[in-house]
Amino acid sequence: MRVLLVEDDSDLSGRIAASLRSENFVVDVARNGEDAQHAGLTEIFDVVVLDLGLPKLDGVSVLKTWREAGRTFPVLILTAREGWSDKVASFKAGADDFLMKPFRVEELILRLRALVRRANGHASAKVVCGALVFDAQVGTFEKDGIPIKLTALEWRVLSCLILRKEIVVDRRELLERVYDGDADVDSNSVEVIIARLRRKIGAEHIETVRGRGYMLTAAS
């Protein structure tokens, strides 16, 4: 899951980013409204954490620009402002959730996971694909009731595939969603991770669609 974290307080953004990365999120950080607006218009994200009080462009203006451009990723507003008018303006601009500072990072993570799950059409916290079950709220995988041990990269790829089960996920999209921007990515890295996942969950569950990408199926 790839997150755009927009927060101008470097200490706070550093703490949030570290916590999100420890929970297998890929995190891009923007510290002003102009950089955030550009990133949201040009990159792929599963969810965005957006502060309202930003240098150069305020959060509501950034959000309006994204929505007017057709960007549909869920956005959680993070702010110290307590006024009802700020909440109204945020939701009118297209926000999906709102969290007041100070907050517990654990709550932020739960909310982000729920936003990503619902954005992919899953009402239940548990996403099922055949014998494979992903508890999207706590981030665990099981097959036939037995927990699956995954590396961070394996988890990112499999979570992306199961949230879009029975849909082809483009190889480039997988790369952007599972690797941090400064990672040294080998051209065959996705294939290596897919091969490892096939050994763990069964080769028949991950189809290669030539020239497009990969698809997780319930096929047995």
Rank of each mutant, 00 (worst) to 15 (best):
R2G: 10
V3G: 02
E7A: 02
E7W: 05
S19M: 07
R21D: 03
S22C: 11
V26E: 01
V29W: 02
A36T: 04
Q37T: 13
Q37F: 10
T42W: 10
I44K: 13
V47Q: 07
V47Y: 03
L50H: 07
G53Y: 08
L57K: 15
V60F: 06
K64L: 07
V75K: 04
L76T: 12
T79A: 14
A80L: 09
S90L: 03
D96K: 05
D97F: 00
F98A: 07
F98C: 07
M100T: 14
K101I: 03
L108Y: 00
I109A: 02
R117T: 01
N120L: 02
S124A: 15
G130P: 01
Q137A: 11
D144Q: 13
I146M: 11
P147N: 11
W155Y: 15
R164L: 02
D170S: 13
R172A: 12
R172V: 11
E176D: 12
D180G: 08
D184F: 08
V185L: 08
V190E: 03
A195K: 15
R196H: 14
R196G: 06
I201M: 03
H205M: 10
T208P: 02
V209H: 09
R210W: 09
R210I: 13
G211P: 04
G213Y: 11
T217F: 05
T217R: 14
A219W: 07
S220T: 09
S220H: 10
